[in-house]
Design a protein around this nucleic acid. Structure first.
Length: 189
DNA sequence: AGGATGATGGACT
DNA sequence: GTCCATCATCCTA
């Protein structure tokens, strides 16, 4: 059932983002399954948010983020990498959650091959999409459809969650809408 | 461990 | 022409 996720993504991104941590982002691309547990996400709140791609309203590029919650929005970053978001909130708001990093639960061998290295496999938004085989072609697909090549599934709830300013942006630094799962001090990890 | 930098495409002025 | 929701590589310590 994706009911809980659907419920979650129906809400505001700054509320949904921290609770999305721990969920699985799963892809089946070229017959290879990769499962990543999300540990770092950021909220972007459409027209209200000067740092959001949706701030200036709907365009052909960002239209996926204005679609129904759970729609995958993929864009090219710095001309080189792909980054993946899930639309959240009511249709037409342009709200979304950028999925930045995680930990590989399944398919590490596939990721090593796709990434061409054995370290730093999924610790950044461009790396995450490359690890999962997400391309611009996947823009607009439904992450809540179990039949989609890229999809979200429920996972174990996160432990401690830390909120910080978002990475790589200069506007709206006062909004602490980057959410990272952290380990308690002394837990030895 | 951490700073600088080139690559590269699309949106915007 | 300029600005990016970045990454890998090359340096200095």
């Amino acid at each position: 059932m994706t009911t809980a996720l659907r419920q979650l993504l129906a809400g505001a991104p700054e509320d949904a983002a921290p609770r999305l941590l721990g969920s699985y982002l799963v892809s089946t691309v070229d017959d290879d399954l990769v499962r990543v547990r999300l540990t770092e996400v950021e909220a972007y709140k459409g027209a209200d948010d000067p740092a959001s791609h949706a701030h200036g309203g709907e365009t052909p590029r960002n239209s996926s983020m204005f679609s129904q919650p759970g729609t995958l929005y993929v864009y090219r970053s710095y001309g080189v990498h792909w980054c993946a978001n899930s639309a959240t909130g009511p249709i037409g708001t342009g709200w979304g959650i950028l999925m930045r990093a995680g930990e590989i639960v399944e398919g590490e061998g596939v990721v090593v091959r796709r990434r061409g290295r054995r370290t730093d496999l999924v610790n950044g938004p461009g790396k995450l999409t490359q690890a999962l085989g997400i391309l611009g072609d996947h823009n607009g697909i439904d992450l809540l459809d179990p039949g989609s090549p890229v999809r979200l599934e429920e996972g174990p709830a996160p432990g401690l969650v830390m909120a910080t300013p978002r990475i790589g942006i200069s506007r709206a630094q006062d909004l602490h809408w980057r959410f990272v799962e952290t380990h308690p001090v002394g837990s030895g990890g």
